[in-house]
Write a protein that binds this DNA or RNA. Structure first.
Lengths: 143, 143
DNA sequence: TGACATTACTTTGAATTTCAAACAATAATA
DNA sequence: TATTATTGTTTGAAATTCAAAGTAATGTCA
């Protein structure tokens, strides 16, 4: 492995170790009192089409049982609403409230800034190459 | 934010959500029965010069109290040894056992493969550009 | 030197997050 | 209709973490 890759590896590990705490603090400073775990649940709810408990849990890589607890807390805090659809009353569809959307907006601004600062030196053509690599890794992980 | 960056962001979030479980499973398949949290502690012990509890905790971004529990477990499992140095008997220096080195070897092989598969399409020159960006981000995070 | 402060670590008690397994309700199938 | 499958919730337990209090060793300085 090249020296550059070793350094990249070390940096990624370090960033990985700190990113959650940093993001959580950024949110706290913006007046948001949710944990990163809760933010991730809201993100998944927002990104999954027809977000049932099963689909959200799959997106997050956690069990439905774990998600039940988390969604119950978020419902109590007023960030999501649960609905039983008439066409299949076994399901629970989760909806984001306006408060949740506002929170996600703050969070995604932070993410955007972070991604920009990582890639600001890379030209778009190189972005495409990196994107192809990341796609390959994501595919590898999903199998 | 460009379309490419949005996709990169989504992929990073997805990978972030799954990477720990994936790495843990890879280790289990290789006969290692440690959690990723425990692996990270071993990594930090291996990478910090004169690894005292305080320095290891700082490297990991956790409190010394949290680390005490973790190191106690790892000592029980035979992966680390704790020593009180004669020159300052308040300190605890942590040492990796041969079992720990073997485990870290397995883990770093996995990491190496992962990093390689992410960056195999990028030329070394581009690696350098990316590295500079990551360095900037790491610096930003450390402040 | 002796008292007080600082440093390094452990212990304690509690919160969060997670899982597996058991349970309940609804829908699909045979 | 009876059985099986799907979808979620509940329960009990484990892992990880923190803040705060406690212990022991070292440093300071009057």
């Amino acid at each position: 492995m090249s020296e550059a890759k070793k350094l990249i590896n070390e940096l990624l590990v370090e960033i990985f170790n700190r990113i959650l705490a940093i993001e959580e603090e950024a949110l706290r400073n913006a007046g948001v009192a949710l944990s990163m775990t809760e933010i991730h649940v809201l993100e998944a709810v927002g990104n999954v089409p027809e977000p049932s408990m099963t689909l959200i849990a799959a997106k997050l890589g956690i069990t439905v049982g774990s998600l039940t607890t988390s969604v119950a807390t978020l419902a109590n805090k007023g960030f999501v609403i649960r609905k039983r659809p008439e066409d299949d009353r076994r399901k629970v569809l989760v909806e984001l409230t306006p408060a949740a959307h506002k929170t996600l907006e703050i969070h995604s601004k932070f993410h955007e800034k972070m991604i920009d600062s990582i890639f600001e030196d890379l030209k778009v053509e190189e972005d495409e190459v990196l994107l192809a690599s990341l796609r390959r890794v994501a595919t590898y992980f999903r199998k």
